[in-house]
């Protein structure tokens, strides 16, 4: 939206120069020349790309290699697809997958919907109120998951705040994190009640950029606020919704710190999620090969989901 069109084509200058160099036929020389010509560009990129190569690209490739190996301390053995087989025949993988699905299926739509509703309610308010609510909803997001999980664990404690509130209404205490029926629900509840600050802000920004003239037109046609919202606002927010759903899904599939700090996957395996399983394989059982294979499977699942959502929601939106 803040995109400026009609820039000077930066290739223009370059392409004219290229004419003079056409005679050189060796492709390697050509490449060298190209690099030489753009040496400043490459130099600007070099620092970032170096750390990227060392601390992201190399470890990623390494992880892929590890997934075909059994990592031992003094010698590492190639095991082909054994790790991947072990992922799909393992007793916990499907439990973890199912828990992760349930978490994602509840949390992502709820968060997006809550964000949409809150943003729609905030949008017509005056500037001061807007700023206030935006800050209130975003504030919990800036504190670390460690802090948030610590305090929720404390509130879910059998002597904690939530059971006290229940006792005020005469409801028996609930074993929030301790029982299989409640543990995952408790973690989901924490995710839903931690406000979707990012979503609210993005929706507000998107609503702010909807031209007032569209609303004018609707008003002249006699449409009420709800009709306007349904017919105009909602369709125009689709790109934001798509963005939030895709990002939310990627995030939810990686839910981990909460699980580690609050239930450690228990009771039984009621709250084991995919990343928690990966973490356990890697840093409790020290099956690095298996852990890498699990991580790669997770990556695949996330990709498929993101792709489906894109296809499904991305009917007439350009990105």
């Amino acid at each position: 939206m803040i995109f400026i069109k009609g820039q000077i084509n930066p290739t223009e200058v370059g392409s004219r120069r290229r004419l003079f160099r056409r005679k050189e036929k060796q492709p390697t020389m050509h490449l060298l020349k190209q690099i030489g010509k753009h040496k400043w560009d490459y130099l600007f990129l070099l620092p970032k790309f170096s750390v990227f190569l060392v601390f992201i690209a190399l470890p990623v490739v390494w992880a892929f290699v590890l997934s075909f190996q059994e990592y031992q301390i003094f010698d590492t053995v190639w095991v082909g697809l054994d790790n991947f087989k072990a992922v799909f025949t393992g007793d916990l993988f499907y439990k973890a997958l199912w828990n992760t699905f349930r978490y994602t299926l509840v949390v992502v739509p709820s968060q997006v919907m809550i964000a949409l509703i809150l943003a729609s309610l905030i949008n017509p308010l005056n500037r001061k109120a807007q700023t206030f609510f935006r800050a209130a909803y975003y504030l919990p997001t800036v504190t670390s998951v460690v802090v948030i999980s610590m305090v929720w664990r404390w509130m879910y404690n059998s002597r904690g705040l939530l059971n006290y509130i229940l006792s005020l209404v005469g409801v028996d205490a609930i074993n929030w994190l301790g029982s299989s029926n409640w543990a995952l629900t408790s973690i989901i509840m924490m995710a839903i009640l931690t406000p979707p600050g990012v979503g609210v802000i993005l929706y507000l920004a998107a609503m702010g950029s909807i031209p007032e003239s569209l609303y004018e037109a609707a008003r002249i046609d006699g449409a009420g606020p709800i009709t306007t919202w349904w017919r105009i606002t909602l369709p125009l927010l689709k790109p934001t919704t798509l963005y939030l759903v895709v990002l939310g899904t990627i995030g939810s599939f990686q839910v981990f710190a909460q699980v580690l700090l609050m239930t450690d996957g228990g009771p039984g395996y009621a709250t084991t999620t995919l990343v928690h399983l990966i973490y356990k394989s890697a840093f409790r059982d020290f099956e690095f090969g298996l852990a890498s294979a699990q991580a790669i499977v997770l990556f695949g699942i996330v990709l498929i989901f993101a792709f489906i959502q894109f296809k499904f929601l991305n009917t007439d939106v350009e990105y």
Partner: peptide
Amino acid sequence: WIMISTMMIPGQVTLVPMFIL
């Protein structure tokens, strides 16, 4: 795109190689 595409990879994937590195 090489750089951006790695944004999708869960951080846990690289934890072990990173540590060794």
